[in-house]
Design a protein around this nucleic acid. Structure first.
Length: 272
DNA sequence: AAGGATACCTGAATGC
DNA sequence: TGCATTCAGGTATCCT
């Protein structure tokens, strides 16, 4: 489900609804998902002081100097409900706030992650520490992109999926960014020329920003916690369009497996 | 030490 | 129809 644009929309929604709110109750509905029950119950009475995103990770800081570190995996989903609403399917835990809202985490495949750690330790947490640069922040410019590309022998599609290089891009947006850049997904990262690097940088900014503005891509179950659906799926140029004709040149879109993940591309627009 | 293969889960879609 | 296989927005871990 969630790549950077979806997580960013979830973040903005949770900021609006949960900032400065007080946690009155926590319900652990799947003890095989959250093992540390005592730590979980320890956040009762805490206030949410800030919400942040790092790559595809959500960070919820509390006033007791602890943070909730959350990752939605493939099928994870946050839903905001009234505290007395019945639990949706696959609900794993609920956090009830003093404004009458319940934040419910649902995750069919349970690939999501949930940790409570001291806020001072978040940057040292292994999964966060190893993340690469934020693609929409100022610290990524063409010079830096060029430098990290030049050091990688990965195919460019694999490079974009590698969270240690750039944080937050997943399979939908890697495909869409490469189409917008007119770059062959199988081309080794270090062989991109200057023009390709500029197109890659600009497409990355454009695709991710547009996807955020559209509320992300709703495929299967993803919604913003308030229940709204994203609409960027209607703007996909290649993802999920195998056999359909390219909007730019009418050539049939191809789908190939690339290290276990589906790669969609236009063989004409993205010629080697 | 970078990067590839596999494991972790459930359900829907596809194939025979 | 029924059963088996493949596929799905991701990451941790083990291995070379």
């Amino acid at each position: 489900m969630p790549e950077l644009p979806e997580v960013e929309n979830i973040l903005q929604c949770l900021r609006k609804k949960l900032l400065k709110k007080n946690i009155v109750k926590i319900e652990n509905l799947r003890k095989d998902f959250i093992h540390h029950e005592d730590k979980l119950q320890g956040i009762r009475g805490c206030t949410v002081t800030s919400l942040k995103r790092r790559g595809k990770w959500l960070l919820m800081e509390l006033n007791n100097h602890n943070s909730l570190v959350l990752h939605l995996g493939m099928s994870g989903r946050f839903i905001l409900l009234k505290a007395d609403s019945p639990n949706p399917k696959y609900a794993l835990f609920r956090i009830i706030f003093d404004n009458g809202n319940a934040l419910v985490y649902c995750d069919m495949r349970r690939f999501g992650r949930f940790e409570i750690i001291p806020t001072s330790q978040v940057d040292k947490y292994k999964s966060i520490k190893s993340l690469g640069v934020e693609p929409l922040e100022k610290d990524l410019d063409i010079t830096l992109l060029s430098r990290i590309l030049s050091k990688s022998k990965q195919q460019i599609k694999d490079f974009l999926l590698d969270q240690k290089k750039i944080a937050g891009i997943g399979n939908i947006y890697a495909n869409e960014i490469l189409f917008a850049s007119k770059i062959d997904p199988f081309k080794p990262a270090h062989t991109l020329d200057e023009e390709e690097i500029i197109r890659l940088y600009e497409s990355m900014q454009k695709v991710l920003k547009e996807a955020i503005a559209e509320g992300g891509s709703t495929i299967n179950s993803y919604t913003i916690p308030s229940g709204e659906q994203g609409s960027f799926q209607f703007k996909h140029q290649v993802y999920g369009r195998k056999g359909k004709s390219c909007y730019h040149c009418s050539t049939s879109i191809w789908k190939e497996k690339q290290h276990g993940r589906s790669t969609y591309f236009c063989p004409q627009c993205q010629k080697p």
